[in-house]
Design a protein around this nucleic acid. Structure first.
Lengths: 206, 206
DNA sequence: CGCTACATACCAACCAGTCGGTTTGTAGCG
DNA sequence: CGCTACAAACCGACTGGTTGGTATGTAGCG
């Protein structure tokens, strides 16, 4: 019977992602994470020096796992950079299903509450967001180069804007309890990007 | 010597707004709020049945105080509805100064972390956000009526979008520690609204 | 045998909430 | 006005349960 030795760390990280997205970093107690992961406190403090340490590692783990999701996403195969950017947004919208806590962003949730109590975690969250924004920025820059359009704030500013819209959509979804609110926000983002990157095209079927 | 009796409740609410915006609802201990307000625990539990009760009341207090700010804002005097909507966004941008915790949204911060642990607070946060969105919606509806433009998702959907952008801008500002990121997001929102509500106008000086 | 990967038992600090008591305001009455 | 009676506002020590963290033990592998 392979008891699954050596995987306590990853189980704890996954538990952290699940629990923290639902109730936040501080409300997620070490004991609850251990229970959810099926390990004991001994295992927890064997792999993480402190709870704060777990928070930092959870943000990094989040980056890795989500990076993998986007790297494998179908929109990556689209050759035209403008189409690819728009397909990215549609892909983000397609993720907005099931329980709200299941599609919200770990690092966005954590960043807000640990803002001035746990700077290392805040930094790790910023790294995660900026890393993902950087990937979006590359596609936007390619779309700008391909079409020749200039955008106020540059590709970076627009990439950050896309992430802000998504983070805000999560906040509203959690507050209202309605995922549809988030989807509506992503639709607006899609229209904005379309207007920016295809300025000559008139309103199309959506 | 008027010792200031009878104002403990408001002082506690103001302390709650300040502390929770910086470190979140759960990390804000009752004792810290009392210390900040200059009262004791006895006073706290005299005015609030529980900490959760304070959270709910703080959201309501937040709504009242912010409503007053917007009601007194200069953009309310603008007659043209399109101009008024755009001036609202500019007003929101003008608030993004000073310490980050000083301009972020209490209810947006709270909603995320108490999402499934304190439903009454979540509800109060939703009420606050939707109340403000409703005010924006009225101006947007007036702008749509005045110009005759139709907007996918309606005035309500667009109003919610404006709030999502702002909430997301706060998240990014807190994560990165840079208020300028938030300002850039608001600029994008401004451009989007301009394009929607003044479709015939070409890019203007900004 | 030594090292990693855990488990168990335990602790000190902390936190929301309680409770008996004090101070201040105020209504009613003569 | 002066006095009594009561209520609301507020104080601060205390408590029971929880939490992050530690100390110690042990099973399995190379």
């Amino acid at each position: 019977m392979p008891k699954g030795r050596g995987e306590a760390r990853e189980k704890l990280l996954q538990a952290a992602v699940d629990v923290i997205r639902a109730k936040g970093y501080i409300a997620a107690t070490v004991e609850e994470l251990c229970q959810r992961a099926g390990v004991t406190k001994g295992a927890f403090f064997h792999h993480f020096q402190s709870k704060e340490d777990l928070g930092v590692d959870a943000a990094a783990y989040w980056s890795e796992t989500t990076d993998a999701v986007f790297a494998a996403a179908p929109y990556q195969q689209i050759a035209d950079p403008v189409d690819r950017v728009l397909a990215y947004v549609e892909f983000r919208k397609s993720l907005l299903t099931g329980a709200i806590a299941g599609f919200t962003c770990l690092v966005g949730t954590m960043a807000q509450e640990v803002y001035d109590t746990h700077p290392p975690i805040r930094q790790a969250c910023a790294d995660s967001i900026l890393n993902h924004a950087g990937q979006v920025e590359r596609d936007i820059a390619a779309a700008m180069a391909a079409t020749g359009v200039e955008i106020e704030g540059g590709a970076r500013g627009l990439a950050l804007y896309t992430q802000a819209v998504l983070q805000g959509a999560f906040v509203l979804a959690k507050a209202t309890g309605d995922p549809a609110v988030a989807a509506g926000c992503v639709d607006h983002l899609h229209r904005y990007l379309q207007q920016l990157l295809r300025p000559d095209t008139t309103e199309q079927a959506n």
